[in-house]
Design a protein around this nucleic acid. Structure first.
Lengths: 211, 211
DNA sequence: ACAAGCATGTTATAATATTAACATATCGCT
DNA sequence: AGCGATATGTTAATATTATAACATGCTTGT
């Protein structure tokens, strides 16, 4: 279900941030909030908040502001936090283990149902209660369980092969932890987490400040 | 040493990508490359490549293109890959452990010299040969070793406190793995890795494609 | 019930970022 | 050596993103 208009990526990437702040406001039992108040908390302009929210519809009320709870619900709906995604982890190394141990993903609708690896020493084991299977069984597994997202935490040299494998069996969402960009079909959605890039940018910014 | 002009963040965030592709080209023993060839490999426009590189100086030669090795060296210098940063990890949980086990950071100039935690069960132990110390000793440690970067992988509820702690002892670079934005002094450089945001965006994009 | 103030939704403007265009210099070949 | 092809660096144009301005309508207190 494509949202109303064409929403720019810049706006989409801010949505989780709105979600988080509204979540916090709810917890603080704050009932209403104006774009200006929110802008001070979030360190972005009130204009931008109003623009962003208006991409999806008029959630506010003039002279009043936004009702925190209903705005939270709207953002949740837009982000699809109510919907559930079935996920697998490919690569039971350090990062795969860390992801498998994160409890928060489930809260946000992401269920990790299996882990795959090639290491015989790991296959048959569990991480945080989730079974580790052989890569050879991936195709069969995906045929039996509808899998929405593959979280790829495999060694860099195998990422291309693994990405092609998981997409060939019909998985449409990839969370890519390798530094490489993936060239896959138009129908596949890839979200990258380039840790080393991020760290290098941090290094650059530090150096450019003279530290 | 601030680089020549004011370089936009958009450009800076692409630098590690150039670095990676050039590294690969070097390995493939490719001697020269034109912006058009590189643009095809990287899936960005040739114009953008020329614009980006020109922020830092004319590294190419008309009618020839760029010499891969010297361009690689230039990007390395700009990114400061030759410089070394001393890093600590705060939070010896899953993510902290994963980071401590990553060998690639050292190759890029980031030396992880200590891990800090509050859990007595972890203090005194090691991860990948790196000692885990009590948080209480952090201040003394930083006084004795110049620490450039703190990698914060602590539980969400303690992130603000920990961030204030590490900046109060003079650390200027923060690699923040918590979902919260940090409000710190102007002199502190914060680079965020918002994993859950990234995953939520992936979910949104999947849903908006109808999956 | 009414008026003053407030805050939205929206339109207009400004600032960034990306792409295209092009003039100039180098390469490579004959 | 000279000429066509090539590919840069740079300037111009376009597209995108962010900020500011403002008119409308709701709220709230008397």
């Amino acid at each position: 279900m494509p949202e109303e208009k064409k929403i720019s990526m810049a706006v989409i990437r801010r949505l989780p941030r709105y979600f988080r702040y509204l979540h916090d406001l709810l917890k603080l039992d704050i009932k209403r909030i104006s774009s200006r108040e929110l802008s001070e908390r979030m360190c972005i302009t009130a204009s931008q908040i109003r623009q962003d929210l208006n991409c999806f519809g008029g959630f506010g009320q003039q002279g009043y502001g936004y009702n925190v709870e209903s705005l939270y619900n709207e953002i949740s709906r837009i982000l699809g936090v109510d919907k559930r995604f079935t996920c697998i982890i490919v690569g039971a190394g350090n990062m795969g283990t860390a992801l498998a141990n994160y409890e928060n993903f489930k809260k946000r609708g992401f269920d990790i149902v299996a882990i795959f690896d090639v290491d015989p020493a790991k296959i048959g084991g569990k991480i945080n209660g989730i079974d580790i299977y052989s890569m050879d069984t991936l195709e069969d597994f995906v045929k039996q369980h509808k899998v929405d997202i593959a979280m790829l935490t495999v060694p860099n040299r195998t990422i291309t092969e693994v990405a092609e494998k998981v997409t060939s069996v019909g998985i449409k969402g990839i969370w890519n932890f390798s530094p490489h960009e993936l060239r896959l079909g138009e129908d596949v959605v890839v979200e990258n987490v380039h840790l080393s890039d991020s760290l290098m940018v941090l290094g650059y910014r530090l150096r450019s400040k003279g530290y």
